[in-house]
Amino acid sequence: METGNQTSVSEFILLGLSEEAEFQPLLFGIFLFMYLVMFIGNLLIILAIISDSHLHTPMYFFLSNLSFADICFTSTTVPKMLLNIKMQSKVITYEGCLSQMYFYMVFGQLDNFLLTMMAYDRFVAICHPLLYMVIMNSKFCGFLLLVSWLLSILDSLIHDLLILQLSFCEELKIPHFFCELNQVIQLACSNIFLNELVLYFANGLLGVIPLIGIILSYSKIVSSILKISSARGKYKAFSTCGSHLSVVFFFYGTFLGVYFSSAAMQNSRKTAIASVMYTVVTPMLNPFIYSLRNKDIKQALKKLFRAAI
């Protein structure tokens, strides 16, 4: 098979979730609805936190950034998918594919770090309540966010630069609705050993370590809650981290489910369908989880609506 230099590659073909023409209007309607719900829901969370001074605390600082990251994370993939369905096109340019991969990885990794920071915030609040404001001061929270951004950008930049070194075959069809890194790598005709090595190393270092941090934080939290004598005290302590725990479950549960199922199924199209869970559904559900289970957010949203009226 002929190979071409990476500079000669002009476009990729995104096969999407289905190639059946009769399903395209249905897919367009479903994904447009989910995207609008996700966008409006997360935007309301951000505006509610900004407008209510009572929510200017570390926990809600991280939550507002999580909502922002969720908006950007989903916006890197769904609008292009909707545009392709509307225009009856499956094409994405080489530059567009690289950009999509870059921003998708930046905001996906940022989501990962923010969930870890929120777990640590709850650990300090429950296990060391008297030192909470000393430890989780504004400078420290800002530092954590800055480091998260830098690591996310660096990780994504390395992957994109390695992609630039690859030569691609003539068959440039991606069985996905966006440019997923591993799918793009598999289209290369040149040696992809370094790309795969960096991919697995980065996933292990920047994926597993934060997850371990979350597990350790919640193991300490559960241990502290069990030591509380009153049932009311236990419920109050658990309620402060229940929403975050639900979001963590959805994010990592769907992501790991897709990861392991893709290894078992070896079916790229089914993997693409399953990935909708963590790329679209989870960011859409996050605002509902926080607003339905959190009295402070409910009150802030009510104030926001009253001010708007």
Rank of each mutant, 00 (worst) to 15 (best):
G4V: 10
N5R: 04
T7F: 00
V9G: 14
G16K: 00
S18M: 04
E20V: 12
F31N: 00
F33I: 12
F33L: 13
Y35I: 04
G41Q: 05
L44N: 10
L63R: 08
N65A: 06
D70M: 11
F73V: 11
S75N: 00
V78N: 01
P79C: 12
K80P: 01
L83Y: 14
L83E: 10
L83D: 12
K86P: 00
S89G: 11
K90L: 03
K90I: 10
K90H: 11
V91F: 04
I92G: 02
E95T: 10
G96A: 08
L98R: 10
Y102I: 05
V106F: 03
L110G: 08
D111Q: 10
T116N: 11
F123L: 14
F123I: 02
K139G: 09
F140D: 05
G142D: 05
W149T: 04
L150V: 15
I153F: 12
L154H: 03
L157A: 15
I163F: 07
L164W: 05
F168E: 08
E171T: 14
I174W: 04
F177C: 11
F177G: 01
F178C: 11
N182C: 10
N182W: 00
N182E: 09
V184R: 00
I185R: 06
Q186N: 14
L194S: 13
L194M: 06
L194E: 06
L197G: 08
L197R: 11
V198K: 03
L199T: 12
Y200L: 09
F201I: 14
A202W: 00
A202K: 03
G204M: 04
L206D: 01
V208R: 06
P210T: 11
L216F: 08
S219I: 10
V222T: 11
A231Y: 01
G242Y: 07
S243R: 01
F251C: 11
Y259N: 05
F260R: 13
S262I: 12
A264N: 12
M265F: 13
Q266I: 13
R269T: 11
R269W: 01
K270Q: 14
T271A: 09
A274W: 02
A274V: 14
P287C: 08
Y290F: 14
L292K: 07
L292Y: 12
K295D: 13
Q299V: 13
K302I: 13
A307Q: 07
